[in-house]
Design a protein around this nucleic acid. Structure first.
Lengths: 340, 340
DNA sequence: ACTGGCACTCAACCCACAAGAGTGCCAGCC
DNA sequence: GGCTGGCACTCTTGTGGGTTGAGTGCCAGT
């Protein structure tokens, strides 16, 4: 049904439409791509492609534009993974080089990604639940009040005050501190949580209430969802491009992008750093964003993702370039943030 | 030169132009405002106002629109401070009611302000240098390494590790901790810095190096500029309004608003919570924003400002309403964040 | 000092027409 | 059977001209 040439025609249409932003006709197609056949033949192929739903015409006697289904086929089977230019690589690494802390890394990543893809970039802060415990600290700020400090591998610091209800001696505190650290340091937060839970039983009965309160505070800090939800957005100016139907629908898109929930849903479940998620047009789970596409991937040092990043742009985007950029930035960020 | 009626005419022009977004002519003016004179008279007045540079015509035989100078006069002398409606007040207070921490307050303020004014809202995080010290904590994480924790009145927590180069006994640590707290708690950060500086001389010679290192770490934390620079932006979707010349220039504005430096400059030196800064069109210190106006004010509990917030919108904005909204939100935020 | 009236200007709108790009289809060719 | 050239047809886009109407400036009159 779809022989090689028809696929080739589809690819040519996608490429031309992406670069010119105008419906592409059979004539200009054969001019720009050495297809080896006449425009009439291409027209026939296009008729088939249209019947199959891969392309459409905005109105009779205009050129064709790819449908979401067409882009999907293009992304899945027709696009080569275009490697980044050396200049682009250099840009990424120098941009991220100077970062001083997690916040800075994320900010710079957003910028880099937005500039590279000329689209809206979204970067999720490293997820607490995926990072590991680096250090736990206990401080008595009053005889019966403790300051609990949690430092994670991603560099985030969280601290809370606990009223333990009974005075705690320095010795008990030191013992508890040591136990907490040996049990949790180096662990993923969820595992650390279970380890800490078991730990309570090993403590002398007299100190058990204290230990249990401290542990539950820590566990609460582990699963603090707010930290998980932090997201940085950049390059929204790229939404506005001259001469674009996308242009009229900028407002809803901007509005959607101010909703944290939307951003998080867009990035989706953190995929493995090796995988790239591409959602095209109607595949994007928001009505307002149905004329946009989302390219996202997880980042992290190991196999599993620390968090997710990606870009949002018009369905008519340069997928190979965008995918390459997203993947490259994710790799660099993963390296930078992975195990500092 | 400018008698009362001419001022009245200017005010009518500003109000009509703001609400209709179309150049306003003499005829429609006399229709909508009971000026008590004929359109011909108004025409004469308008000719004078134009000569003086308060209004201009986009092209011959069109209505007049206010110039920046016209808006300036309007803001300075012609606009009454329109009090907020009860509903608006309620909206603000319920919006800010549920906030759980500083981050949350700021996020909610941005949203509230953006919705209320239908413009782009900017809220600066409470400035470290303007808040006070609530608590200082020292923790030995190794014999010669200390964790220094600083908690400020705005709820921000900052901690750093210091290598003091010599072992520190628990007794010395306790002494130092007590001295640090009595010297600094309740002080503004800059004053606290000087107090701490003096404190070093009172310490026994043997511990002076340690004290000095801890103090300099704290002082560094005080003046950490990054914390000062945090700014939240919201309501960018409001930039896009149908049928608007502003519409074409959205891109540069969006770009400008992604620059932290720009945002901070726009908010300007934190003014007293009682003062409202209005910068109109060309008065805004950025070329790209010369068709926008900025309304900003400081917020805080006392006389002096904790930080600044404001909105950015088209020069053709409803100044009285915007100013009232900015002032009201600032007041609520100041109350919420001032002395929690 | 204000008003009514009048001539003038100019953007905006409408309409009609031509140009151009693109299509679909068919008959013919290899 | 698949490809091509040709042709009639469609529909958007651009252009020119005429009209409309809001708005102005000015002047003579109250």
């Amino acid at each position: 049904m779809l022989d090689d040439r028809k696929l080739e025609v589809l690819r040519a249409i996608v490429e031309d439409y992406v670069s010119t932003r105008e419906p592409v006709g059979s004539k200009s197609l054969v001019d720009r791509h050495a297809l080896g056949v006449s425009s009439a033949t291409v027209r026939n192929d296009m008729a088939v492609l249209e019947e199959e739903g891969f392309i459409a015409q905005p109105h009779t006697s205009a050129g064709r534009i790819p449908t979401d289904k067409g882009y999907r086929l293009f992304v899945d089977r027709l696009s080569a993974v275009r490697p980044l230019s050396a200049a682009e690589r250099r840009a990424i690494s120098t941009f991220l080089q100077g970062a001083v802390d997690v916040d800075d890394v994320v900010q710079r990543s957003v910028r880099t990604l937005a500039q590279l893809t000329r689209q809206v970039a979204i970067v999720q802060y490293p997820s607490l639940t995926r990072s590991t415990v680096r250090h736990v600290e206990l401080v008595a700020i009053a005889p019966d009040r403790l300051l609990v400090v949690l430092i994670t591998s991603s560099g985030r610091v969280d601290q809370r005050v606990v009223d333990v209800g009974q005075p705690v001696s320095e010795a008990v505190l030191g013992d508890l501190r040591a136990r907490l650290n040996t049990a949790s340091v180096g662990q993923r937060l969820p595992e650390a949580a279970t380890r800490l839970g078991e730990l309570v039983h090993d403590v002398a009965v007299a100190e058990r209430p204290v230990a249990s309160m401290v542990v539950s505070t820590l566990v609460e800090a582990f699963s603090d969802e707010r930290a998980d939800e932090r997201v940085a957005v950049g390059g929204t100016a790229n939404l506005v491009r001259f001469g674009d139907d996308f242009d009229r629908s900028v407002r809803p898109v901007l509005e959607a992008l101010e909703e944290h929930v939307v951003l998080l849903t867009l990035l989706g479940e953190a995929t493995s750093p090796r995988m790239l998620t591409v959602r095209i047009g109607s595949e994007v789970p928001f009505e307002e964003l149905s004329s946009t596409s989302v390219v996202a991937t997880g980042y992290g040092s190991g196999e599993e993702a620390l968090a997710t990043l990606g870009v949002v742009g018009p369905t008519r985007m340069d997928y190979p370039a965008t995918m390459a950029a997203v993947r490259a930035v994710a790799r660099y960020v993963g390296r930078t943030l992975g195990d500092p």
